[in-house]
Simulated assay, not measured.
Amino acid sequence: MVTAQQKPGTSDVTAAVETLREALTAAGIVLPSLGVDEASPSLNLITLGRVRADVALRLADIIRRGCS
């Protein structure tokens, strides 16, 4: 599992994708395009992809509740 203490660029990008996918699934959110961005492997980028407006609003609500 990826922890908040890890420095940017040092995490296993595949594990990060799976951890995020699990958290989103638990919240009832699916990002169909979620995956590893293969274009720049040294940057460990993750593609979140496009989502419908209702999914973006639900995600924003969950994040806000988690931050309060």
Rank of each mutant, 00 (worst) to 15 (best):
M1F: 08
M1H: 12
V2P: 15
T3W: 02
T3R: 08
T3C: 10
T3D: 07
A4C: 06
A4R: 03
Q5V: 12
Q5P: 02
Q5W: 08
Q6E: 15
P8W: 03
G9Y: 07
T10I: 11
T10G: 02
T10D: 09
S11K: 03
S11I: 01
S11D: 14
V13R: 03
V13T: 13
A15W: 05
E18K: 09
E18R: 06
L20C: 12
E22I: 06
E22A: 14
A23W: 05
A23L: 11
L24T: 01
L24G: 02
T25R: 15
T25E: 14
T25L: 14
A26D: 12
A27F: 00
A27Y: 06
G28E: 05
V30F: 04
V30A: 09
V30H: 10
P32Q: 04
L34G: 04
G35D: 11
G35A: 13
G35C: 12
V36E: 09
D37G: 04
E38W: 03
E38G: 03
A39M: 03
A39E: 12
S40K: 05
S40T: 11
P41T: 07
P41Q: 01
L43S: 12
L43H: 06
N44P: 03
N44F: 04
N44W: 00
I46E: 05
I46W: 10
I46C: 10
T47E: 10
T47N: 13
T47I: 10
L48A: 06
R50I: 05
R50W: 11
R50L: 14
R50G: 13
V51Y: 00
R52Q: 15
R52T: 13
R52A: 15
A53K: 04
A53I: 03
A53H: 11
D54G: 00
D54Y: 07
V55A: 06
A56G: 08
A56R: 10
L57V: 10
L57K: 11
L57E: 12
L57N: 09
R58C: 10
R58N: 13
R58K: 15
L59H: 02
L59D: 00
L59P: 03
D61G: 15
D61I: 02
D61R: 06
D61C: 04
D61Q: 10
I63Y: 00
I63E: 09
I63K: 00
R64P: 07
R64M: 13
R64V: 11
G66S: 07
S68P: 06
S68R: 12
S68C: 10
S68D: 13
